[in-house]
């Protein structure tokens, strides 16, 4: 699966995209592959303030826990609650159907995050 060119990426394998005044956040297919079998996803309640690079949720396999880290600071405006029940859907399409939260982040600037080319290079390095 290719890494979509229109998204921005974090070193902790989240992606972010501006949509209206909001920032849509999800995890990448690289993260999904690394987790192997998702058994639990915890997403924040609506209205929760999140801070850039700090955890806003948790995703788990049987024997490992990964924090979901916010690409930008903001307030949780929407949550894709369906994903917390249908891990297969999340694993199938992490970049579109599998978005996790939308953050209210006026004036958010994603330019500090990696672009697709930089992220692919980052993953290739991490893989070795």
């Amino acid at each position: 699966m290719g890494v979509p060119a229109d998204l921005r990426y974090t070193k902790s394998h989240e992606w972010a995209r501006l949509e209206g005044g909001k920032v849509v956040v999800g995890i990448t297919d690289f993260a999904v592959a690394a987790i192997k079998e998702i058994v639990f996803l915890e997403l924040p309640p609506l209205g929760r303030a999140v801070e850039a690079a700090k955890p806003f949720g948790v995703i788990e396999s049987v024997k490992a826990v990964f924090d979901l880290k916010a690409p930008v600071s903001g307030k949780v405006a929407e949550v894709n609650a369906k994903m917390a029940e249908d891990f297969e859907a999340l694993a199938r399409d992490p970049f579109v159907q599998g978005w996790l939260v939308k953050l209210e982040a006026p004036g958010a600037d994603l330019s500090g995050l990696m672009d697709a080319a930089a992220y692919e290079k980052f993953c290739a390095e991490e893989h070795h």
Partner: peptide, 12 residues
């Protein structure tokens, strides 16, 4: 539900 436990989550 072992991810709650010390041998996986350690200080958390």
């Amino acid at each position: 539900l072992q991810t709650r436990e010390q041998h996986i989550r350690r200080e958390k």
